Amino acid sequence: MQKFLPALVLAILLSSPVSAAIIEGKVYSWETFEPLKNCIVTINTTPVQRYVAVNGSYMFEVEPGVYLLEAYYYGDITLYANETVRITENGTYRIDLLAQPVIEELNVSAPEISFELGNGKRESSWPVVPVFIALTVVIAASGYLIIRKRGEKSDDEEALPEDLEELLAIIRRSGGRITQKELKQLTGYSDAKISLMLTDLERRGKIERVKKGRGKIIFLKE
Protein backbone atom coordinates (compact mmCIF):
# COMPACT_ATOMS: atom_id res chain seq x y z
CA MET A 1 0.00 0.00 0.00
CA GLN A 2 2.86 2.39 0.85
CA LYS A 3 4.32 1.86 -2.64
CA PHE A 4 1.16 3.23 -4.26
CA LEU A 5 0.71 6.19 -1.86
CA PRO A 6 3.04 8.69 -3.69
CA ALA A 7 1.39 7.88 -7.02
CA LEU A 8 -2.06 8.38 -5.48
CA VAL A 9 -1.10 11.79 -4.03
CA LEU A 10 0.35 12.87 -7.40
CA ALA A 11 -2.82 11.82 -9.21
CA ILE A 12 -4.96 13.84 -6.78
CA LEU A 13 -2.78 16.94 -7.26
CA LEU A 14 -2.88 16.67 -11.04
CA SER A 15 -6.65 16.23 -11.07
CA SER A 16 -7.25 19.31 -8.88
CA PRO A 17 -8.75 22.20 -10.86
CA VAL A 18 -6.43 25.13 -11.60
CA SER A 19 -7.93 28.39 -10.43
CA ALA A 20 -7.90 31.32 -12.84
CA ALA A 21 -9.08 34.90 -13.03
CA ILE A 22 -12.11 35.87 -15.10
CA ILE A 23 -12.18 38.93 -17.36
CA GLU A 24 -15.68 39.89 -18.47
CA GLY A 25 -17.51 42.92 -19.77
CA LYS A 26 -19.35 44.47 -22.70
CA VAL A 27 -18.36 46.24 -25.90
CA TYR A 28 -20.28 49.48 -26.51
CA SER A 29 -20.77 51.50 -29.70
CA TRP A 30 -19.16 54.96 -29.64
CA GLU A 31 -22.21 56.47 -31.36
CA THR A 32 -25.19 55.01 -29.47
CA PHE A 33 -23.51 53.79 -26.25
CA GLU A 34 -25.50 50.58 -26.70
CA PRO A 35 -23.93 47.09 -26.56
CA LEU A 36 -22.25 46.31 -29.89
CA LYS A 37 -23.66 43.05 -31.22
CA ASN A 38 -21.72 40.47 -33.23
CA CYS A 39 -18.27 41.90 -32.54
CA ILE A 40 -15.08 39.86 -32.06
CA VAL A 41 -13.12 40.15 -28.81
CA THR A 42 -9.59 38.74 -28.50
CA ILE A 43 -7.00 38.48 -25.73
CA ASN A 44 -3.32 37.69 -26.31
CA THR A 45 -3.03 34.65 -24.06
CA THR A 46 -1.05 31.61 -25.21
CA PRO A 47 -2.76 30.47 -27.33
CA VAL A 48 -4.80 33.56 -28.30
CA GLN A 49 -8.44 33.40 -27.20
CA ARG A 50 -11.23 34.75 -29.42
CA TYR A 51 -14.85 35.36 -28.47
CA VAL A 52 -17.76 36.28 -30.74
CA ALA A 53 -19.84 38.64 -28.59
CA VAL A 54 -23.29 38.06 -30.08
CA ASN A 55 -24.98 40.49 -27.67
CA GLY A 56 -21.87 42.55 -26.90
CA SER A 57 -20.85 40.54 -23.80
CA TYR A 58 -17.64 38.51 -23.50
CA MET A 59 -15.75 36.45 -20.89
CA PHE A 60 -12.23 34.98 -20.70
CA GLU A 61 -10.42 32.83 -18.13
CA VAL A 62 -6.76 33.82 -17.72
CA GLU A 63 -3.77 33.32 -15.45
CA PRO A 64 -2.20 36.31 -13.63
CA GLY A 65 -0.26 38.52 -16.05
CA VAL A 66 -0.55 41.52 -18.38
CA TYR A 67 -2.81 41.15 -21.42
CA LEU A 68 -4.02 43.17 -24.39
CA LEU A 69 -7.79 43.03 -24.79
CA GLU A 70 -9.04 43.98 -28.28
CA ALA A 71 -12.50 44.27 -29.87
CA TYR A 72 -13.30 44.43 -33.59
CA TYR A 73 -16.55 45.17 -35.40
CA TYR A 74 -16.87 44.89 -39.19
CA GLY A 75 -19.95 46.60 -40.61
CA ASP A 76 -20.55 49.69 -42.73
CA ILE A 77 -17.56 51.10 -40.85
CA THR A 78 -14.86 49.26 -38.93
CA LEU A 79 -14.87 49.85 -35.17
CA TYR A 80 -12.02 49.01 -32.80
CA ALA A 81 -11.22 49.18 -29.08
CA ASN A 82 -8.37 47.96 -26.90
CA GLU A 83 -7.41 47.92 -23.25
CA THR A 84 -4.31 46.70 -21.41
CA VAL A 85 -5.32 44.59 -18.41
CA ARG A 86 -3.07 43.63 -15.48
CA ILE A 87 -4.24 40.54 -13.58
CA THR A 88 -2.52 40.23 -10.20
CA GLU A 89 -4.70 37.63 -8.49
CA ASN A 90 -7.66 35.36 -9.05
CA GLY A 91 -11.10 36.93 -9.15
CA THR A 92 -13.49 38.61 -11.58
CA TYR A 93 -12.35 41.71 -13.48
CA ARG A 94 -14.98 43.87 -15.22
CA ILE A 95 -13.63 45.64 -18.32
CA ASP A 96 -16.06 47.50 -20.63
CA LEU A 97 -14.79 48.64 -24.04
CA LEU A 98 -15.90 51.59 -26.21
CA ALA A 99 -15.41 50.76 -29.91
CA GLN A 100 -14.60 53.72 -32.17
CA PRO A 101 -14.07 54.14 -35.94
CA VAL A 102 -10.67 53.20 -37.33
CA ILE A 103 -8.91 56.09 -39.10
CA GLU A 104 -6.58 54.63 -41.71
CA GLU A 105 -3.26 56.27 -42.39
CA LEU A 106 -2.96 58.31 -45.57
CA ASN A 107 -0.90 56.48 -48.19
CA VAL A 108 0.48 58.88 -50.79
CA SER A 109 2.21 57.54 -53.89
CA ALA A 110 3.82 59.98 -56.32
CA PRO A 111 3.92 59.23 -60.05
CA GLU A 112 7.27 59.01 -61.75
CA ILE A 113 8.41 62.39 -63.13
CA SER A 114 10.89 62.55 -65.96
CA PHE A 115 12.04 64.94 -68.62
CA GLU A 116 13.60 64.45 -72.04
CA LEU A 117 17.21 65.43 -72.59
CA GLY A 118 18.58 66.81 -75.81
CA ASN A 119 19.82 63.36 -76.88
CA GLY A 120 16.30 61.92 -76.60
CA LYS A 121 17.06 59.86 -73.46
CA ARG A 122 14.48 60.10 -70.64
CA GLU A 123 15.94 60.58 -67.17
CA SER A 124 14.32 60.92 -63.75
CA SER A 125 14.28 64.47 -62.47
CA TRP A 126 15.41 63.76 -58.89
CA PRO A 127 15.11 67.36 -57.56
CA VAL A 128 11.44 67.51 -58.68
CA VAL A 129 10.31 64.22 -57.12
CA PRO A 130 10.85 65.17 -53.44
CA VAL A 131 9.14 68.53 -54.01
CA PHE A 132 6.17 66.85 -55.68
CA ILE A 133 5.85 64.30 -52.86
CA ALA A 134 6.03 67.06 -50.23
CA LEU A 135 3.34 69.10 -52.01
CA THR A 136 1.13 66.03 -52.38
CA VAL A 137 1.42 65.23 -48.67
CA VAL A 138 0.65 68.84 -47.69
CA ILE A 139 -2.42 68.97 -49.97
CA ALA A 140 -3.68 65.59 -48.73
CA ALA A 141 -3.17 66.56 -45.08
CA SER A 142 -4.93 69.90 -45.61
CA GLY A 143 -7.88 68.18 -47.26
CA TYR A 144 -8.07 65.67 -44.42
CA LEU A 145 -8.09 68.44 -41.78
CA ILE A 146 -10.81 70.37 -43.64
CA ILE A 147 -13.00 67.27 -43.91
CA ARG A 148 -12.40 66.45 -40.25
CA LYS A 149 -13.35 69.98 -39.12
CA ARG A 150 -16.51 69.86 -41.21
CA GLY A 151 -17.34 66.49 -39.66
CA GLU A 152 -16.81 67.86 -36.15
CA LYS A 153 -19.00 70.86 -36.95
CA SER A 154 -21.80 68.67 -38.28
CA ASP A 155 -21.54 66.45 -35.17
CA ASP A 156 -22.01 69.49 -32.95
CA GLU A 157 -24.96 70.78 -34.95
CA GLU A 158 -26.82 67.49 -35.31
CA ALA A 159 -29.59 66.57 -32.91
CA LEU A 160 -28.58 64.70 -29.78
CA PRO A 161 -29.61 61.04 -29.37
CA GLU A 162 -32.71 60.48 -27.25
CA ASP A 163 -30.81 59.05 -24.29
CA LEU A 164 -28.50 62.10 -24.14
CA GLU A 165 -31.50 64.45 -24.39
CA GLU A 166 -33.10 62.51 -21.54
CA LEU A 167 -29.96 62.98 -19.44
CA LEU A 168 -29.90 66.74 -20.14
CA ALA A 169 -33.59 67.02 -19.25
CA ILE A 170 -32.97 65.37 -15.87
CA ILE A 171 -30.08 67.76 -15.16
CA ARG A 172 -32.27 70.76 -16.10
CA ARG A 173 -35.06 69.58 -13.80
CA SER A 174 -32.50 69.33 -11.00
CA GLY A 175 -31.65 73.02 -11.37
CA GLY A 176 -28.66 72.47 -13.65
CA ARG A 177 -26.69 70.59 -11.01
CA ILE A 178 -26.76 66.91 -10.02
CA THR A 179 -24.39 64.17 -8.85
CA GLN A 180 -23.42 61.24 -11.05
CA LYS A 181 -24.78 58.85 -8.43
CA GLU A 182 -28.20 60.55 -8.52
CA LEU A 183 -28.23 60.34 -12.33
CA LYS A 184 -27.63 56.60 -12.14
CA GLN A 185 -30.51 56.18 -9.67
CA LEU A 186 -32.92 58.27 -11.77
CA THR A 187 -32.11 56.62 -15.12
CA GLY A 188 -31.39 53.04 -14.05
CA TYR A 189 -28.38 52.93 -16.39
CA SER A 190 -25.14 51.16 -15.43
CA ASP A 191 -22.09 53.07 -14.16
CA ALA A 192 -20.27 52.37 -17.43
CA LYS A 193 -23.08 53.70 -19.64
CA ILE A 194 -23.63 56.81 -17.48
CA SER A 195 -19.90 57.56 -17.63
CA LEU A 196 -19.80 57.15 -21.43
CA MET A 197 -22.87 59.35 -21.93
CA LEU A 198 -21.47 62.10 -19.70
CA THR A 199 -18.16 61.95 -21.56
CA ASP A 200 -20.02 62.49 -24.84
CA LEU A 201 -22.01 65.44 -23.42
CA GLU A 202 -18.83 66.96 -22.02
CA ARG A 203 -17.14 66.62 -25.42
CA ARG A 204 -20.08 68.44 -27.02
CA GLY A 205 -19.74 71.25 -24.47
CA LYS A 206 -23.13 70.59 -22.86
CA ILE A 207 -21.95 69.82 -19.31
CA GLU A 208 -19.00 70.09 -16.98
CA ARG A 209 -17.98 67.48 -14.40
CA VAL A 210 -16.30 68.47 -11.13
CA LYS A 211 -14.85 65.86 -8.79
CA LYS A 212 -15.92 66.17 -5.16
CA GLY A 213 -14.72 63.57 -2.69
CA ARG A 214 -15.35 60.12 -4.15
CA GLY A 215 -18.07 61.31 -6.50
CA LYS A 216 -18.62 63.83 -9.27
CA ILE A 217 -21.02 66.75 -9.67
CA ILE A 218 -22.41 67.54 -13.12
CA PHE A 219 -23.13 71.16 -14.07
CA LEU A 220 -25.21 72.22 -17.08
CA LYS A 221 -23.34 74.66 -19.35
CA GLU A 222 -26.31 75.79 -21.48
Rank of each mutant, 00 (worst) to 15 (best):
Ile23His: 00
Val41Cys: 04
Thr187Met: 08
Glu152Pro: 09
Val138Pro: 03
Ala21Gln: 01
Ile113Asn: 02
Pro127Phe: 01
Ile40Arg: 03
Tyr144Gln: 09
Ile40Cys: 02
Met59Gly: 05
Ser114Cys: 08
Arg204Ser: 08
Tyr74His: 06
Pro130Ile: 03
Val48Trp: 07
Leu220Ile: 11
Val210Leu: 13
Ile95Tyr: 00
Val9Ser: 09
Phe4Val: 10
Glu61Asp: 10
Arg173Ala: 14
Glu24Val: 00
Gln2Ala: 14
Gln49Lys: 01
Val54Asn: 12
Ser125Leu: 12
Phe219Leu: 15
Ser16Asp: 02
Phe60Val: 00
Leu98Gly: 00
Asn107Tyr: 11
Tyr74Ala: 05
Glu208Asn: 13
Ala7Asn: 07
Glu83Leu: 06
Thr179Phe: 07
Ala134Cys: 03
Ala110Asn: 03
Ile12Gly: 09
Arg86Gly: 03
Glu104Ile: 09
Phe60Lys: 00
Arg209Asn: 07
Ile95Gln: 01
Gly188Pro: 12
Val102Ile: 08
Tyr51Val: 04
Ser142Phe: 14
Lys26Asn: 03
Tyr73Gln: 01
Glu89Asp: 11
Ile170Thr: 05
Gly25Val: 02
Leu201Ala: 12
Asp76His: 07
Cys39Phe: 02
Leu168Ile: 10
Ser114Pro: 06
Pro35His: 00
Trp126Leu: 14
Tyr67Phe: 05
Pro127His: 00
Glu70Gln: 08
Asp76Gln: 13
Leu167His: 06
Phe115Met: 09
Met197Ala: 15
Gly75Trp: 00
Phe219Asp: 07
Val54Leu: 15
Gly151Asp: 14
Lys3His: 12
Phe219Gln: 06
Leu220Arg: 15
Gln185Val: 12
Ser174Gly: 13
Ala140Lys: 07
Arg86Asn: 09
Leu117Ala: 11
Ile171Cys: 05
Leu14Gly: 11
Ser29Val: 03
Val210Pro: 07
Pro101Arg: 00
Tyr93Val: 09
Asp96Pro: 01
Arg86Ser: 10
Thr84Ile: 14
Tyr93Lys: 04
Pro111Lys: 13
Arg204Lys: 15
Asp200His: 09
